[in-house]
Design a protein around this nucleic acid. Sequence first.
DNA 1: CATATAAATACGCTTTAGCGTATAGCCGCC
DNA 2: GGCGGCTATACGCTAAAGCGTATTTATATG
Lengths: 91, 91
Amino acid sequence: MACLERYAVDQIARTPKQIGDAIRRQRRNLGLNQTRVRDKTKLRQATISAVESGAPGTQLGTLCDILAALDLEFVIRPRTKAKPAEIEDIF
Amino acid sequence: MACLERYAVDQIARTPKQIGDAIRRQRRNLGLNQTRVRDKTKLRQATISAVESGAPGTQLGTLCDILAALDLEFVIRPRTKAKPAEIEDIF
DNA sequence: CATATAAATACGCTTTAGCGTATAGCCGCC
DNA sequence: GGCGGCTATACGCTAAAGCGTATTTATATG
């Protein structure tokens, strides 16, 4: 049950805003603009913008589509003591 | 940068259905019923039911409320090769 | 079997996400 | 200054989420 080290790219997100931030960061890491993500998904550029801004009404399907386009995934786990803003490796 | 081991409760989720499953699992682990989660949040029991069933239209705010009530959090990270169904320790 | 507890569905209502399309605001750069 | 790429905003529209309330359909459990 050993584990490999994880990178700083792992982001804890507990709010729509934190999720949006993580998405925006990854999009930029990949060197994409919102229009490019629009093409990879079937969403509008305006929708991508809203999600990255942390719109709480964002729908789960929409979110999953964007995550897929950015090659991201969720991990769901019990909350840690670490502050949500933590970006560093929390393991 | 060493890391502690993580438990099998960590769930990879890439779709609304997988997210719903993880939520249901945790709710049961905590010995709660949907009505109890309704009380902890300000959602209806019917809404909890829909989310656990994997409704793709579920809103992010709704989801975050439920995660908070169940003491769960998201981690967003680049996709791994592991199958989404993985429940075991994937590190 | 009967009953109690839990989860899924139903109905009418209000609010809003995401859509297409278009434009306005920003910011860097020549 | 002026231009081009990128993001935020706008408008009208349709579909649907979540609401309150209530009921039906499992799923135990005595």
